[in-house]
């Protein structure tokens, strides 16, 4: 069995974000990066499947971006992936989700993967399109938003999270893509010995130009923080007086009181 896990490196969500000079993405200066949270669930589930199958499957982790993304890949390798593929791209943020999916599909099409794990979405862009588009481009079965995963005899059984707390059970034949949601598992911490072992694992570097042949379908036009709204009216002074003024405002500006 061959398994692919696709991960993205995203800024730490505690960061302060500012638009960059081009005005289509945030400035990456001084940001700390880490693995996209949903992709950690994907890596963990893939590693669990490998363990379930006695270590037989070969687990490849793929990420697109500049050299800093290798750090996220090293974490995935320390969690238990076998090898890495870095699609070297200085500006993945300028690619739309269709292009990102096309890059992954172009890499995966001749590799005979049985299963592809991705996060449900990225924490920074949040399009939730890449995983399902990869499935479409590869003509694989697909289940999104999974919160439980089982595998036996070539059949994948997943529990999906639907609207309003409703759950659905879906069975898929491999080859398949699944996109992973919060609640699927608790990702392991890479241990120090495994971080050391990861240093010896192979990371193949492929220039993005070798894999990308598609034009964007949806390009970001502008990127900005919403304008600050007015600060509202603060009533001060005597309480009885405040109550009278509040009633007057409610009568004048709303339909609550007439």
């Amino acid at each position: 069995m061959k398994i692919l896990v696709c991960i993205k490196q995203v800024p730490d969500m505690e960061s302060r974000f500012k638009p960059d000079s081009a005005g289509v993405w945030f400035s990456e200066t001084d940001l700390a990066f880490r693995m996209n949270e949903y992709d950690e669930y994907a890596v963990e589930q893939a590693v669990r499947l490998k363990e379930q199958l006695g270590g037989e499957p070969e687990l490849t982790v793929l990420s697109i971006g500049p050299d800093r993304v290798v750090e996220a890949m090293k974490k995935a390798l320390a969690m238990g992936c076998d090898r890495g593929v870095q699609v070297q791209d200085p500006s993945p943020h300028l690619k739309d989700p269709f292009q990102i999916a096309s890059i992954i599909a172009a890499y995966a099409k001749d590799q005979q993967f049985d299963l592809v794990f991705t996060g449900l979405q990225s924490q920074d862009r949040g399009s939730a399109q890449v995983g399902v588009t990869v499935a479409e481009l590869l003509n694989f079965a697909c289940a999104s938003t999974i919160i439980k995963f089982e595998y036996a005899d070539g059949i994948v059984t997943v529990k999906r999270e639907l609207e309003g707390g409703v759950k659905g059970i879906v069975k898929l034949k491999t080859p398949a893509v699944v996109t992973c949601q919060l609640g699927l598992n608790v990702p392991r911490y890479p241990t120090l010995p495994n971080i050391m072992k990861a240093k010896k694992k192979e990371i193949l570097v492929i220039p993005v130009g070798d894999l990308l042949h598609e034009q964007p379908l949806a390009q970001t036009a502008t990127f900005y923080a919403p304008a600050k709204k007015g600060t509202g009216v603060v009533l001060e002074g005597d309480v009885a007086d405040q109550a009278e003024r509040l009633i007057a405002i409610l009568k004048e500006k709303t339909a609550v009181l007439r």
Partner: peptide, 9 residues
């Protein structure tokens, strides 16, 4: 990068 992976873990 290896030290960063260690620190974050």
């Amino acid at each position: 990068q290896d030290h960063k992976v260690l620190r974050d873990s």
